[in-house]
Nucleic acid binder design. Structure first.
Lengths: 185, 185
DNA sequence: TCTTCCTATGCACCTCGTTGCATAGCAACG
DNA sequence: CGTTGCTATGCAACGAGGTGCATAGGAAGA
């Protein structure tokens, strides 16, 4: 289970509440690891009782109070150990690939709309990444030594962009194939 | 849940037993949808009672008898309906991306071995795909009209190859970034 | 005042997925 | 004859993940 570790990384980058974590999992972190607020609250509870994180009640004005979590020593140790642990390459789940192979037994042309919908979603996400890259990494490192955190966030973002570009190109390939089947019958 | 649909597609391509399906999920299908034999047997049971598939006892000699499953009318209908249904783009789970961002808070150099291990796995898988492509799609369609099933299987395979190539290139990017951090401190 | 919306946390329930184990037929080998 | 290994099916239990719902404070606007 890597959700715990994803939370540790996010809290090391910046301490925050369960609610704030949930929103981070809708943006930056969520592009390579998804989680609902339910999962996050549940795991934070376990991590607290395991001593991986510390909690601090924070009073707020104009909005409900919150609990701010930050990484404790044992949590940092656990993350360090996990980093060197061998993890199996993630199991893939591409329902669109299932649909494409399934189209052979239905109407291939009927799948086109769905493929175009996915292509649009990937195009949007790529545009979002590019905006974020220009905002966060547009200028060279602002003096000082290499900032490891910044460099590593950037290389992960480049991975996300490479994935979206690959998907868009593949979906174009799929659309061309579907169109070819439609024309050829 | 798309496991049912993945099984339907696999059974339409070729009827078979739960055991045979489990082995297919370790190869071709398994590259974009994973499942253990437990899941498969459980889902086949439900699909049978829902009338999506038919069962046939097959006596075998030199090995235990088996149950051969094939797709029934309602199963084919369910697949057709699902193909046109809007499916959300699959939720991604890239533990390696979590590790890369986490490396900022540990020793970036310690991650290199793990990244190289993943790179090797993707290289191996790409080589496996290329072998399969040469074997199954090396020669142009053997006469007759365009074979939809074959074309669609090929485009899915091309997607798998594009994914592996993208991952290898990204992992090289990650390795260069990690090496740069190591040299620059 | 009433409704709507956002922040913030959490419970209950259900499904999906994984692990471990059990059973059984048959083949091959020492 | 016993062990090992492959084919073939399945149960039991657990943990992960997701959906729906509940609660509660406060802001903003009709």
């Amino acid at each position: 289970m890597a959700l715990e570790h994803a939370i540790l990384v996010s809290l090391l980058e910046k301490p925050g509440s369960g609610y704030e974590l949930a929103r981070r999992f809708e943006r930056s972190i969520g592009y390579f690891w998804t989680a609902t607020h339910q999962q996050i609250y549940r795991v934070l509870k376990r991590m607290t009782s395991d001593g991986w994180v510390d909690v601090r009640d924070v009073q707020q004005y104009g909005r409900p109070d919150k609990k701010e979590y930050s990484v404790a020593g044992p949590g940092r140790d656990a993350l360090g150990a996990w980093l060197q642990e061998a993890t199996e390459p993630e199991s893939v789940r591409h329902d669109l690939a299932v649909k494409v192979r399934g189209a052979a037994f239905g109407d291939p042309a009927a799948l086109i709309t769905e493929v175009e919908r996915h292509r649009q979603a990937h195009t949007d996400r790529l545009a979002h990444y590019l905006t974020g890259e220009a905002r966060d990494f547009g200028e060279p490192t602002a003096g000082g030594p290499l900032d490891a955190e910044r460099e590593l966030q950037h290389v992960v973002l480049r991975g996300g962009m490479a994935y979206e570009r690959m998907m868009i190109a593949w979906l174009d390939d799929v659309l061309a194939t579907l169109a070819g089947l439609d024309a050829g019958r």
